[in-house]
Nucleic acid binder design. Structure first.
Lengths: 210, 210
DNA sequence: ACGATTTTGTTCTCACGTTCACAAGCTCCT
DNA sequence: AGGAGCTTGTGAACGTGAGAACAAAATCGT
């Protein structure tokens, strides 16, 4: 399920605060979900809790990490080192949460060998070799929309089977390849939509909708 | 619905390619959804199509933009100008798609007056004033997780009613305030999960799962 | 002017995910 | 040792969203 990483993050946060055990209510609150949903999700992995007591934070943390498959670092490449690629390369959250950035790729020859976040930018020519040599299964696309599909095709051909796409483009991939899309302006537009509805409803009803 | 912005983007792309009219099948393919779903979504807005012909791209584009509420630019503030905040401030997708970044805020006094993306960074002291003067309804939080809730509280108190949160923290807000969360490492972990399942299943079944 | 064709708008069915509610089980206190 | 009090795990109802199928309507050709 897509909520396991959220639970994992909440567990890490609890562990950092020195909390050794927690109930489903507490963990659900930390993760921002319903406690029933949380228990059902966790029961899908197995019975890792103790009735009357709760869950052992450290134990559950490891079990979820194992289920997700981030017990050891997974190699990742980032393609497109523009503003966003820069930020991603410097983002500490990747490296501390089960991922290892093995290469930064950019099509601009002038940028090759430039260092970002302690890693030198490589040209697109090296894409296939790096993916094969490092056994990279996950690629991050942070190129302009026009280049996204071509980059995607090359990544998939080289052996990448999961893609995180920041480019505002719909990627078509063969079966067996997963794509997740993060579109920043679409997120904002969704907020704008709710915003507009609030602006329309509130003056009439005279209050916020609980 | 959360898919309207996707349709809008697809329509803009079609318009840029000089396509004046399109069927639900074509638009659905461009948006990456089912044509039935698309038609149902659009019918919720009204009958903007013509049977036997399809949809007028330009007309539908305006209608969706109006529905979302991005016909004129909405003011937005970005709080936390680290790596990610930098990228967001420079991201052209916001400004070209119905939003106007009116302020960049950072807690670090040394960064104040530094210019990013043509806008000077302001200190947190100016938060309330800017939000009120510019009538800002949407705030973007790109701070570290530890600062996110405090920033969120200040934004909400100043009048912001929609928040896009990039910090890896669960924000609690009063009723009537919308929060959308974008967590980059969670997206990667979701891919890792699918990746692991592929690695487990494929060697046994001997092929990709269609 | 009329029918064939295309495409929308809508209805119906189905499956999934969420939530409530309760039984099973563990701990602690007496 | 035995019961009271929690807390997990799960079974059942509910609501929501997705997909297929069909009817209404507009154009085009004859």
């Amino acid at each position: 399920m897509a909520r396991l990483p959220v639970y994992l993050r909440a567990l890490v946060a609890l562990a950092e605060r020195g909390i050794a055990t927690c109930s489903s209510e507490e963990l659900a609150a930390a993760a921002g979900v319903n406690s029933s949903k949380l228990r059902k999700d966790l029961s899908y992995l197995g019975s890792y809790g103790t009735r009357g007591v709760g869950y052992d934070v450290e134990y559950l943390r490891y079990q979820i990490a194992r289920e997700i498959g981030v017990t050891e670092d997974l190699p990742v490449v980032i393609v497109g080192i523009g503003n966003l690629g820069h930020a991603l390369a410097n983002y500490s959250g990747f490296t501390t949460r089960g991922f290892r950035i093995v290469a930064l790729l950019d099509s601009d020859p002038d940028r090759v060998d430039e260092e970002v976040g302690g890693l030198a930018i490589r040209g697109h020519d090296d894409l296939e070799r790096i993916v094969r040599e490092e056994n990279v299964a996950i690629g991050i696309i942070a190129t302009p929309a026009a280049a996204a599909q071509a980059v995607c095709d090359r990544l998939v051909a080289a052996g990448v089977t999961s893609i995180l796409n920041f480019a505002p483009a719909v990627l078509s991939v063969p079966p067996g390849v997963d794509v997740r899309k993060v579109d920043l302006s679409i997120e904002l537009q969704i907020l704008a939509y709710h915003e507009q509805r609030k602006a329309l409803v509130q003056p009439i009803e005279g209050g916020v909708t609980a």
